[in-house]
Simulated scan of single mutants.
Amino acid sequence: MFINTQSDTDSFTEGEAQLPEAMAFWIEEPGVGVLRRQPVARAGDGDVLVRTSYTGISRGTESSVFLGRVPASEHDRMRAPFQEGDLPGPVKYGYLNVGVVEQGPAALRGRTVFTLFPHQSAFVVPADAVVPVPEGVPARRAVLAGAVETAVNVLWDAGPVIGDRVTIVGAGMIGCSIARLLQRIPGVDVVLVDVDASRREVADRLGVGFADAANAPGDRDLVINTSGSDAGLRLALESVVTDGEVIEASWYGDRPATLMLGADFHSRRLTIRSSQVGAVAARRRGTRTTRDRLMLALDLLHDDAFDALLTGHSSWRDLPAVMAALADGRSGDLCHTIDWEDAA
Results as ranks from 00 to 15, higher is better:
R59K: 13
R199Q: 13
G209Q: 12
L87I: 11
E341A: 15
A203R: 01
V125E: 03
A43T: 05
A343H: 02
L259P: 11
S227D: 05
I174D: 10
R291P: 03
L108V: 10
T112R: 01
L235W: 06
T242Y: 08
V193H: 02
G163V: 10
R37E: 13
H313M: 07
F2G: 01
A257L: 14
T242R: 14
R109L: 13
T287A: 15
V98W: 02
L108G: 10
L67P: 01
V34K: 07
D254S: 13
V166L: 13
E201G: 03
F117Y: 15
L144F: 09
G286D: 12
G228S: 10
E14F: 13
E248F: 09
R42S: 12
F210W: 08
S53A: 14
V188M: 12
A142E: 00
P217G: 02
L294D: 00
E238L: 11
L49R: 13
G31N: 04
R79G: 01
L326P: 02
A122E: 05
P217L: 10
P105V: 07
P90F: 06
R141F: 01
P186L: 12
V34Y: 00
L116V: 03
Q120K: 08
E84T: 05
A325Q: 15
A343R: 06
C176Y: 10
A158W: 00
H302M: 06
D304H: 12
D318W: 08
A213N: 03
A321F: 01
R268C: 11
Y95H: 14
A305T: 09
L19I: 06
W340H: 15
D318R: 11
A308D: 11
V131R: 04
A203K: 00
S314T: 14
D86Y: 06
A213S: 14
D189R: 15
R220I: 05
